[in-house]
Computed example of a mutant assay.
Amino acid sequence: MNLFSGRPTSFDPAWATHGLPDTSRQQIAGAFKRLGQQVELLLVPGLFGSGPDHWQSHWEQAYGLKRLHQKDWETPTPADWEASLTAAVETSSRPVFLIAHSLGAVLSAKWLCRHGGHRVAGAFLVAPADIDQTTHPDVERIRSFGPLPHTPLPVPTALMASSNDPWLSLPRARELAGQWQSDFLEAGAVGHIGSSEPLGLWEHGATAMLDFARRKLPFRVQ
């Protein structure tokens, strides 16, 4: 069970895999392929590593994305997780675009503040866990990853948040997006946007991310 996956109180089935016609799904897949020709698309999971029902796992399988691996998903340490991300970025033959969720989004934001934008083209940060302000009882598991950055991130970023996330309130998400100078994107009422939400391929998030990439990355994405 993923401690970071809050149950939604409402869900728009049009965002699930069956909600779009085949042509739209094909268009999304084609856009992922074209973006992947420009950058290395790297999935950065959070605590427990995004299980098989997580949208990151669906994207990995459907679009051929790479996933960041950690030695310990259950008892994470900032130094080890940062080292894994550093190694993945440095060994990539192309600029990296980070697709991060929850604690992975926190890791990505802090990594960018520490290392700058060298070899990273941008980041899509989904539901970063609010280590500083959340009252969730499980926050002590990840307390060592705090505090969250309070300064602009050095590359184009988007922060996508849910209106009923138990780990990140919408006002706090807007605040973080302002501090990081990230585009702010709303996901609707879909909990923590994790394994417990029936998102499937989560085309709503995919189209939002692809639109962000077209608008903000330092090269043209068709």
Rank of each mutant, 00 (worst) to 15 (best):
L68W: 02
M160F: 10
F212M: 06
L153M: 08
F97M: 13
L41I: 14
F145L: 01
A189G: 03
L68A: 02
H54I: 04
D130S: 07
I131Y: 01
G30K: 02
E186M: 12
G146M: 02
S144T: 03
F184W: 12
T135G: 14
R25C: 10
D132K: 04
D138F: 12
F212I: 07
V96K: 12
P78I: 00
L168A: 10
R214V: 02
N2T: 06
P52C: 00
S92L: 04
E74F: 03
W73C: 00
Q61N: 00
A105T: 08
G64Q: 09
P152C: 11
S50H: 01
L42G: 07
H136N: 12
A16G: 15
L47V: 12
P13M: 10
A121H: 05
A105Y: 08
R220C: 00
A83V: 01
K33L: 04
G116H: 12
A177M: 13
L201P: 09
R174Y: 10
T23K: 09
P8K: 08
A87K: 11
P128Q: 15
G104E: 02
P171W: 14
G49V: 02
A109W: 07
H18A: 15
A127C: 09
H69W: 01
Q26S: 12
D132E: 11
I193L: 15
L148Q: 04
A161L: 09
F11Q: 05
A83C: 03
Q133W: 05
V126D: 09
V120H: 08
D211F: 03
C113Y: 06
S57M: 07
G49C: 04
R119A: 06
A213N: 08
S57W: 07
E197S: 15
G194K: 12
P8E: 07
A14Q: 13
P76W: 03
E186H: 11
A83R: 10
V126A: 10
L65N: 07
S50T: 11
P147T: 00
H192V: 10
E40D: 15
T23W: 10
G116E: 12
K216L: 01
S10T: 12
A129K: 00
F32C: 02
K71T: 14
S10A: 14
T91W: 01
T75F: 10
L210Y: 02
T9G: 06
Q26N: 10
A29I: 02
I28A: 15
N2S: 11
F212C: 03
S169C: 09
F97T: 05
F145T: 00
V89L: 00
G64S: 04
A29G: 11
R143T: 09
H192G: 15
A83P: 01
D211R: 11
G116R: 13
P198L: 13
Q27E: 09
L35S: 05
E90C: 02
P13I: 06
I142L: 11
G194F: 11
P13F: 10
V126H: 06
Q27N: 01
G188I: 04
D130I: 01
S108L: 06
P128G: 11
S10R: 15
E82L: 13
R172F: 07
F124I: 03
W81L: 07
A129V: 14
G116Y: 13
P95C: 00
Q56I: 05
K110L: 10
G146D: 04
F219E: 06
H101P: 02
A173R: 08
I193Q: 14
W15E: 12
L159D: 09
A16H: 14
P78W: 09
A208S: 14
G49T: 03
R215H: 14
A109C: 05
W59M: 08
P166E: 01
